[in-house]
Design a protein around this nucleic acid. Structure first.
Length: 580
DNA sequence: GCCGTTTTCGGCCCGACTGTTTTCAGTCG
């Protein structure tokens, strides 16, 4: 008997499935820990670098943290039948629209449930009608304020999307931090949260402040012109929203507790849960104010974050690692990675000039690289297939190499390398002939078309490129555009294994809407001994500023300087590339 | 639902703010 071959669900699909079950269970009144278990499974699936469905097939799903017997069975059921019985039961019991209610700020499972039971509110549309007709205020436990807040939340929801790009949010966060630093009652301040952990997208700005005069800090900050509204304000805590629709949270503590506060609000939530569990076993209780010795009640306050970890017998854990992905164990065992720093980068192997779609000349790009302290830069302009006629024909590529050599004669203090960003065409061919590629210092191959091809076809294309001895690297290897386009169907493990076998470098493209490879994929590559390159993909002199985002993503992937080829001195890089 | 050099059962991180209540539940991070 043949079973119909079912397409394996993506990690994202499984994550969404478990998140939906979690939401339904919360609405149903399940214990919070059961709900959390489903949410944790969803998060684990969403972030995992390898195919979760494939792991389930092979029976080793339970090797993932937080995945137990029940979750494993539910995944198997989904693979087998295309659905999960528990979810169908819940769907039969409650309209799916009630889950939307819980996504409104200020509405959790309890309020959503009350609205549904008391008023028959089944989704946002019926809630809006009920609130406008003034019926919400009559629900026990709710009042006029609740009703108004719900209406405001629904109106605001239209304008607000979820997460914003790190590169968009960071400058705004810096502006707020700079403003706070100008206040004389503030002894220290930083942004914390996912921004400090360098997540590629962030939901809000968390600001932490050390001060002996919280009242004046609150008064000062709540009047900042960047804020469109202040939504919550107590003596030491404030929640606001910027004109750019970003949520801002501010917390103030005395300077002697600043380390505790910064640690607490840097998160991640998972890291803190794990850290507190660990602390508890050692006989300590960790809060945002201190570390308390449970037996004696003695409270240890920490001016710095390092002291928090030190009190628990741990070395400082860099924020980028705080995701509960093994950093506590590594810290305990003294094997935390020595993470790469921006200053480790000696060169940039992927920049564009006005020969293709860049906006600056070769000379201007060279000088800008030198200004930033780089020792070498490689021009990888697009080859001919790029749309709008901006790509270079083979003879133009050769002409450009001559121009670069000429420019080298006029610019001192930085080495100019010749290169190309060639297209891997839809049929796997490369759009420049090998004899041209062979004359370049460094060649990156990228996919810019045929994004919707099936995995097999995509992998064939990537394999053809990696097996070409004239191609050194794969550019933005999964093609994702954050918030706009999912990766094409690439088998990351296959990609990494082939890169290891062929010695192909995989790029971490530092443009903040790409960050591709992602941190989890970079970690997988690094664990397989694949060499990485962190490149800006700059299209203008300012584009070099993107490198810091690439370094952040790499650090989140446990990447060390030794994993990254453009930390090498030029001579060693050349010998690695086979151009002594 | 998950998990165990305290445990296979009984825990599971901890505190601030809001709104509706007269002492606290719900939500959030």
């Amino acid at each position: 008997m043949t079973r119909p071959e079912r397409r394996l669900p993506t990690n994202r699909e499984l994550a969404d499935l478990f998140q939906t079950i979690a939401d339904y269970l919360a609405f149903d009144g399940a214990t919070v820990y059961r709900v959390l278990a489903y949410e944790k499974a969803a998060e684990t699936f969403r972030e995992h670098a390898l195919s979760v469905a494939e792991m389930a097939r092979q029976g080793n799903l339970r090797s993932l943290p937080g995945i137990g017997e029940t979750t494993e069975k539910k995944v198997a059921e989904y693979l087998e039948t295309g659905t999960v019985g528990l979810l169908e039961t819940l769907r039969a019991r409650y309209p799916e629209g009630v889950l939307e209610l819980m996504r409104l700020p200020g509405v959790g499972p309890k309020k959503a449930r009350k609205l549904w039971e008391a008023l028959g509110v089944a989704d946002l549309a019926t809630l809006e009608v009920a609130a406008e007709e003034g019926r919400v205020r009559d629900v026990p436990g709710m009042g006029v304020r609740t009703e108004q807040n719900l209406l405001a939340a629904m109106a605001a929801r239209e304008r607000r999307s979820g997460r914003q790009l790190l590169g968009v949010v960071e400058p705004q966060a810096w502006a707020l931090v700079e403003a706070l630093r100008s206040h004389q009652a503030i002894e220290a301040t930083d942004y914390a949260g996912s921004l400090r952990r360098r997540r590629s997208t962030v939901r809000d700005i968390d600001l932490v402040v050390a001060s002996r005069d919280p009242a004046s800090v609150m008064a000062f900050f709540s009047a900042r012109p960047e804020l469109a509204s202040v939504e919550q304000q107590g003596p030491t805590k404030l929640a606001a929203r910027t004109h750019t629709e970003l949520a801002v949270d501010l917390r103030v503590v005395p300077p002697e507790s600043y380390g505790n506060l910064l640690q607490h609000f840097t998160g991640s939530a998972d890291h803190n849960v794990a850290l507190r569990g660990y602390a508890q076993r050692l006989g300590f209780k960790v809060s945002e104010y201190n570390v308390e010795e449970t037996a004696t009640g003695r409270r240890i306050v920490c001016r710095t974050e390092a002291q928090v970890y030190d009190t628990l017998g741990l070395p400082f854990i860099p924020p980028e690692l705080r995701e509960d992905r093994g950093e506590l164990e590594a810290a305990r065992e003294g094997r935390l990675p020595q993470l790469i720093e921006l200053s480790d980068l000696r060169g940039d192997l992927h920049v564009h000039s006005d020969w293709s779609d860049g906006r600056a000349t070769i000379q201007a790009m060279a000088l800008a690289a030198r200004e930033r302290g780089l020792e070498y830069v490689c021009f990888c302009d697009h080859s001919r297939s790029l749309g709008m006629g901006k790509g270079l024909e083979p003879e133009q590529v050769l002409e450009q190499t001559e121009v670069i050599r000429h420019a080298q004669g006029e610019v001192e203090g930085i080495a100019l390398l010749t290169g190309s960003e060639v297209d891997i065409l839809a049929d796997g061919r490369i759009d420049l002939p090998d004899e041209v590629l062979a004359r370049l210092d460094f060649v990156t191959a990228s996919i810019h078309s045929g994004f919707s091809q099936p995995e097999e076809q995509i992998m064939k294309r990537l394999a053809a490129a990696m097996e070409n001895p004239n191609i050194h690297a794969i550019g933005h290897p999964t093609g994702r555009l954050l918030g706009r386009r999912d990766p094409y169907h690439v088998d990351v493990r296959g990609l990494v294994e082939l890169a290891a076998k062929t010695g192909t470098i995989l790029e971490i493209n530092a443009a903040y809407h790409r960050l591709d490879l992602s941190a989890t994929n970079a970690r997988l590559a690094r664990d397989h001994g694949v060499r990485l390159a962190i490149n800006s993909d700059a299209h203008s002199p300012a584009g070099y500023d993107l490198l810091r985002f690439g370094v952040g993503e790499a650090r989140r992937g446990w990447v060390e300087a030794g994993d990254v080829v453009n930390t090498l001195p030029l001579k060693e890089l050349r010998s690695l590339l086979g151009h002594p």
